[in-house]
């Protein structure tokens, strides 16, 4: 574990060599795609034994979001929630995934419980996980077109009498 907590204050705090933020009292590290697997392995060795959740966010309409300095800005962000049951602490790992090559290595060999979650992320966002044992869609029908939770995927609507379209 490389915990640079004693680093000079003007530097961005890091953990596992990645920028660390603690907004809302929650530990979040921002990982490069290249180092994703290595960092996840380091966290697992460090006690974060359970991978609770893998999800993603499509920042298409919110690209100017706040990010710590030196973190790549991409359209997609995959969010991995880890839990250390012995120490009772959580860690969130955010990985930026570019739009032109939406793929990440799978965590299946490290945390087999991510199997269904990664399928869901693929299904909903079109981010593929290299090496996943079963990269099919999980919630949508297998011949579905498009990835519904992307921001450029329209919600669609059916006409409702006496109610103007809720334009928010």
């Amino acid at each position: 574990m490389t915990d640079d907590a004693e680093a000079p204050e003007e530097r961005v705090p890091t953990r596992y060599g990645c920028p660390l933020t603690q907004r809302f009292g929650q530990d979040v590290i921002y990982v490069d795609r290249q180092r994703y697997l290595d960092v996840l392995k380091a966290t697992a060795d460090d006690g974060y034994e359970m991978c609770l959740d893998v999800t993603a966010v499509d920042y298409l309409k919110h690209l100017e979001r706040w990010l710590p300095d030196g973190v790549e800005r991409h359209r997609f962000e995959v969010v991995v929630n880890l839990l250390d049951m012995k120490a009772g602490r959580r860690l969130r790992v955010n990985v930026a995934v570019p739009e032109d090559d939406p793929s990440l290595p799978t965590l299946f060999d490290l945390h087999p419980g991510t199997e269904a979650m990664e399928r869901e992320v693929f299904d909903m966002f079109g981010i593929s996980f290299d090496g996943h044992p079963d990269p099919s869609r999980i919630l949508m029908p297998e011949d579905w077109d498009g990835h519904p939770l992307r921001k450029d995927y329209a919600t669609g609507e059916i006409p409702v009498q006496f109610k103007a379209g809720n334009a928010r």
Partner: peptide, 30 residues
């Protein structure tokens, strides 16, 4: 901001991951 909260539901950990872009509806809710 972005936040994840987990509680013990009857079936296990129910987690809520919300990303807000400052508007009145969640930018992403998981």
């Amino acid at each position: 901001g972005e936040v994840y909260v987990g509680i013990e539901g009857p079936r296990g950990e129910i987690g809520c991951h919300i990303v807000s872009d400052g508007s009145a509806a969640p930018y992403r809710l998981h």
